[in-house]
Nucleic acid binder design. Structure first.
Lengths: 222, 222
DNA sequence: GAGTGTATCAACACAGTGTCGACTGGCTCA
DNA sequence: TGAGCCAGTCGACACTGTGTTGATACACTC
């Protein structure tokens, strides 16, 4: 049985010129095909045969590259989450500089990262229902964001800018859960949902009130 | 082709004594079987054959009662949502009496309604990914809650208990979305999630701060 | 020029879905 | 009382999608 290749990038690419069509190109073709098809229909309306044909290979050959279509989605999803991480930076750690502005910046970066890959975001969220693996990846990413947000909340409480209240971690989970679900319904254009242009204003307001009790918390210099 | 029966209760039950096993009993047996199996595994790990066997009938006979397993879930889901509506009452309309207490009451009723039917709640939420029909039912229910919550927020702003802010409807959507997702991760015992005992305290606190800017808003009499 | 690893696919086995057509057995009304 | 109706039932089939097997090709290595 051929081992499905992991997307491990340091696989040794053997000497000089690659074959007409290399394995990496095929892998990328499969990923691109899924991303394209997800713009039109949901993962469970896409068959492995669709992906294989889209990448110009047969169904058994598909299995040489990925173990399942969920695995393809997972790869796409992980890439996107990596990008989301990268663009966001450490904005939350510098909350004290100007809470309202920094928070808007951080939440805006998330929003933008997900918005720019709408189809993958939605499919990834939906796939959590059916794939324990997707659930686990998402759980790890969320865990990191929760820890970061909780630390930021505690720091703001410590410097007296935010009043004490419910456990910082629980608050962070609540607010991030809100983001997650609000983004999802907005991107899916479900009813009821918030208009794309109003999402950021609304969630920033909730974050500020939930953490500081006011929409205009004090900056560190003030 | 036999018409799949709706769960329409006023179907005429013909004269005197019912047959050994009536159609209604079968229908109830299918619903009960799904609810039982959902405690152990997810909808897409349950086949129509499982449901049929569980109800003591063959697979083709299943189709006499329901058009698909999603339809069975939908029936279960709608019943549960109906109960959630019923137990909650009009608490949100009486927010002014004592905002913190009434809000806790209203959110507590929701939490309890969903908690008591954990398996159906989780399966219903998951099925939104794959079934437009489930999505639509959930959308309608949410829409009603959003309208009610938005009206309550506007009333509190009108009486001066809550400060003005982002659109009441958008705020209502955000807060209800938070509930939805927080409940889901808690019931599914995903990581990260809020402990079952802390959920109510946490979300009530966010609602109060987001609407009133404080955890101790004034009652109407005060 | 034999051997190894990558890449490929036709053909198969299988699981689940949905449908068709035939059958049963109680009930109604002529 | 017996012809006809109808809710209810299921064996058998066709179809779709999944995952595996085994054989093959090709490039590059030693």
């Amino acid at each position: 049985m051929p081992q499905p290749r992991t997307s491990d990038p340091q696989r040794p690419t053997r000497g000089r010129r690659a074959r007409k069509v290399s394995g990496d190109e095929r892998e990328r073709a499969i990923l691109a095909t899924l991303e394209r098809l997800l713009e039109e229909r949901s993962l469970h309306e896409i068959s492995i045969d669709d992906l294989a044909r889209g990448a110009g290979i047969s169904r058994p050959t598909f299995y040489f590259y990925f173990a399942s279509k969920e695995a393809v989605l997972l790869s796409l999803f992980e890439r996107m989450l990596g990008e989301a991480q990268a663009t966001r930076g450490d904005t939350l750690n510098r909350l004290a500089e100007d809470p309202a502005a920094r928070l808007r910046e951080a939440l805006g970066a998330f929003f933008e990262a997900f918005r720019s890959r709408r189809a993958v975001t939605l499919a990834g969220a939906d796939a959590q229902a059916s794939s324990a693996e997707v659930r686990e990846v998402w759980g790890h990413v969320m865990e990191a964001w929760v820890a970061e947000a909780a630390a930021a909340i505690e720091a703001e409480r410590a410097r007296g800018a935010a009043p004490p209240g419910v456990a910082a971690r629980d608050l962070a989970i609540s607010l991030l859960s809100m983001n997650e679900r609000v983004f999802h319904t907005t991107f899916a254009r479900q009813q009821p949902s918030i208009a794309e242009d109003d999402v950021l204003d609304t969630i920033v307001s909730v974050w500020l009130h939930a953490i500081y009790g006011t929409a205009t918390p004090p900056a560190a210099g003030a």
